[in-house]
Simulated assay, not measured.
Amino acid sequence: MAFVGKGGSGKTTLAALMARHLVESTDKLLAIDADINQHLAAALGYTEDEAVLLPALGDHLDQIKDYLRGSNPRISSSKAMVKTTPPGPGSRLLTIGEHNPLYEAMVRRVGGVRLAVTGPFATEDLGVACYHSKVGAVELLLNHLVDGPGEYVVVDMTAGADSFASGLFTRFDMTFLVCEPTLRSVGVYRQYIGYARDYGVRVRVVGNKIDDQSDVDFLREHVGPDLLTWVGRSGFVKGMERGAPAGTIEPANRDALETLKAAVDSCTKNWSTYAQQAHEFHLRNASAWANAKVGEDLAGQIDPEFVLGATESRKDDQHVS
């Protein structure tokens, strides 16, 4: 599941709340901070000094590519892999709860939650690099991930429409758009929903910072049936944001989190569509910039017969750790 929304809407807070809620009942959970403003670790309980020491996915991109490539004959080298490179026969696939070199190097427990972070936009990147090259590590991981019922990935995405700068927005069973009861926040919803529906991406709105019924009525007026649930002002959340959560989350807000979980659990992943979307964005990236950068036609990396979820019954033939 992805959490998106206007900057300051509370998407990171909601992603952290959801991860905390899920980890109470399962360890088949991975949280990923894919926002240029890296705050998910802090929302889960780390201090800023602790958070900056977390290993960054963006700094291990070569290791990620080399591992996921496996013995896939369609990929000439790990250097020829780009963020949209899809898996195929011989690729190493990932599952949520397994032990593998990538998780060992880049995943840490923060507040009881297994967390991976993309990494901040470094000083040396200013003016010469695109942050989405770092987020490409997340896209590669999700492209090679085989997940099932009762397993969860919670991703805190970049703010606003920046989420559409890559095919990453198609990698989720459910996208939760966190929306405050304001016109600016509703504007981001309208922009996002227009893009998402073109690709069949499931989007539900989660109201945040709700004070009273008038706030709910405002959201219902502007987003209609896309409003799934809402989170009210919370003393627990205030304490969490100040680094000192006390007690337990309010029953109504816990019910809202359970509603989010139920929405994700109700999704049935269409693995064929998932593969088609991956192929489409890979071809777009290949023709736009990747062929020229790598020096070969990357369309050949696509195996049209390979569907990720269908590999479950033939894992013995794959390099799955």
Rank of each mutant, 00 (worst) to 15 (best):
A15D: 08
A41L: 01
D125Q: 10
P89F: 12
E104K: 13
P86K: 05
T248M: 13
E180F: 06
T175D: 04
A263R: 02
G8L: 06
Y199G: 09
H60S: 14
A262T: 11
T118D: 05
K238F: 07
G309W: 00
D35L: 05
F236L: 00
Y189F: 15
A56D: 11
D265F: 02
R74P: 03
D226K: 08
L53N: 10
E296V: 11
Q38Y: 03
V110C: 11
K261Q: 14
A290Q: 09
L44C: 08
P73K: 10
G187S: 10
A34G: 14
D27C: 07
G167A: 06
A288G: 05
G235H: 10
A129N: 12
N291R: 00
Y131L: 02
A278W: 01
D49W: 07
S9N: 05
L142Y: 00
H282N: 06
S272G: 14
G295C: 09
A256C: 10
D62W: 13
K261G: 05
Q63N: 14
Y274E: 07
L102Y: 02
Y274N: 04
H319W: 13
L17M: 10
M1R: 10
G309I: 01
L57E: 07
K83C: 14
V153Y: 03
D217S: 13
F218I: 09
L29R: 06
C179H: 02
T13K: 04
K83R: 15
A310D: 08
M157R: 04
L168K: 02
K261T: 14
A161M: 13
T273W: 09
G8P: 03
V128P: 00
Q38S: 13
L298D: 04
D156G: 08
A51F: 07
A161D: 14
V188T: 13
P55A: 07
L57V: 14
D316C: 13
P101N: 10
D173T: 09
A19Q: 11
V320K: 03
P120Y: 03
P86G: 05
T12A: 11
E221S: 12
H60Y: 11
F169I: 07
V223L: 01
D62Y: 08
P149K: 01
E24M: 13
V155H: 01
T182M: 07
R92W: 06
I302L: 05
V155E: 02
K134M: 14
A262D: 08
R74W: 09
I64N: 01
D198W: 04
K65N: 00
V110N: 02
S313E: 15
R114S: 15
L57R: 01
F306P: 02
K261P: 00
A290E: 06
G136F: 04
V153I: 09
S76T: 15
S185H: 07
V146G: 00
V138H: 01
G88S: 04
A105P: 00
G160D: 12
Q38E: 11
V52A: 04
R284G: 09
V138P: 03
F281N: 02
G224H: 13
D62P: 08
V201C: 09
G97V: 10
A16W: 03
A278Q: 07
V178S: 03
G309D: 00
K269Y: 05
L298M: 11
H279D: 15
D317N: 09
